[in-house]
C-alpha cells in the first residue's frame, strides 16, 4: 500500500493526462463523428459513400494499429508532433466512427411520421430538423454516446504503450521501481479507471431515465 501512497503524485499526473486525452479526443470525436453522421444521412451520394468507407475502415482497424500509425508511421513520414498530440489524433480518429454510428441510429430512430407531420403542417427543413427531429434524436443519442466515451476512457490506456505518460504508463513506471507491490499498484490504477467509467455509467443511467421519450 505504501508504494501507492508514495507514488501518488505520479498516479495523479498520469490520471490528469488520461483525463486530458479523454477530453480532447472525446470532443474531437464528437465533432468529426457528427459531421460524418451528417454526411451519411445526406442525400448527396458521394458524401454518403465517403462516410461509409471512412466508418468501415476505422471501425475495423484495431486501435493498436491506429495508434501505431500515429506514433511510428507519421514521424517516419516526416511529421514532427508531440506524442501526446499524436495519440489524441489517433484516439479521435478511432472514436469518431463509433460516434457517427450512434448519432446516425439516433436520427434514424425518430419515426418518419414525426417528420412527415412536421412537413405537412408547413415547417421548412430547418424547422423540421431543429424543432421536431433533433430534440427527439438527441435524447436517444446521449446514452449510447456516453457508452462510446466509456470505451474511449478505457482505450486511452493503449496510448500508454505509445510513449504517452498517462495512467497505464505511469503504473508501469511505478512497477519498475516497486516490483514488490505489483498487486496494490495495479488495483490502485483499476480504481482510478473505475472512477471515470462507473461515474459515466451512472450519468448515462440517470440521463436515460430523465430524457426518455415515451412512445
Amino acid at each position: 500500500m505504501d508504494a501507492v501512497l508514495e507514488n501518488l503524485p505520479t498516479f495523479l499526473r498520469g490520471f490528469g493526462v488520461t483525463i486530458a486525452l479523454l477530453g480532447i479526443a472525446g470532443a474531437g470525436a464528437l465533432v468529426i463523428g457528427t459531421l460524418v453522421a451528417a454526411m451519411r444521412i445526406s442525400p448527396v451520394g458521394s458524401l454518403r459513400g465517403f462516410a461509409v468507407v471512412y466508418t468501415e475502415i476505422l471501425r475495423n482497424t484495431p486501435l493498436t494499429l491506429v495508434l501505431f500509425f500515429c506514433a511510428f508511421i507519421l514521424p517516419y513520414l516526416g511529421v514532427r508532433i508531440d506524442f501526446f498530440v499524436l495519440a489524441a489524433i489517433g484516439l479521435t480518429a478511432y472514436t469518431s466512427p463509433f460516434v457517427a454510428e450512434a448519432v446516425r441510429s439516433g436520427v434514424n430512430g425518430v419515426p418518419v411520421g414525426q417528420a412527415e407531420a412536421a412537413r405537412s403542417i408547413g415547417l421548412g427543413f430547418g424547422q423540421t430538423l431543429g424543432l421536431v427531429v433533433m430534440p427527439q434524436a438527441i435524447r436517444m443519442v446521449i446514452p449510447p454516446l456516453i457508452n462510446v466515451l466509456i470505451a474511449l476512457t478505457k482505450n486511452t490506456s493503449v496510448a500508454g504503450a505509445f510513449f504517452v505518460k498517462e495512467l497505464f504508463a505511469s503504473a508501469q513506471d511505478v512497477i519498475n521501481v516497486r516490483g514488490d507491490q505489483v498487486f496494490a499498484i495495479l488495483m490502485a490504477v483499476a480504481v482510478f479507471y473505475l472512477v471515470i467509467t462507473v461515474t459515466l455509467g451512472r450519468i448515462a443511467a440517470v440521463v436515460e431515465k430523465r430524457v426518455a421519450v415515451l412512445r
Binding site: I150, K154, N155, T156, S157, V158, G160, A161, F168, A171, Q172, I175, V182, F183, L186, V189, A190, Y193, L194, T197, V198, G201
Partner: peptide, 15 residues
Amino acid sequence: RGMPVLLMMLFTLLI
C-alpha cells in the same frame, strides 16, 4: 466491463 483490457492483460502477466 469498466476495466481497460490492456490493464487486465498486464495484471495477469505480472501477478
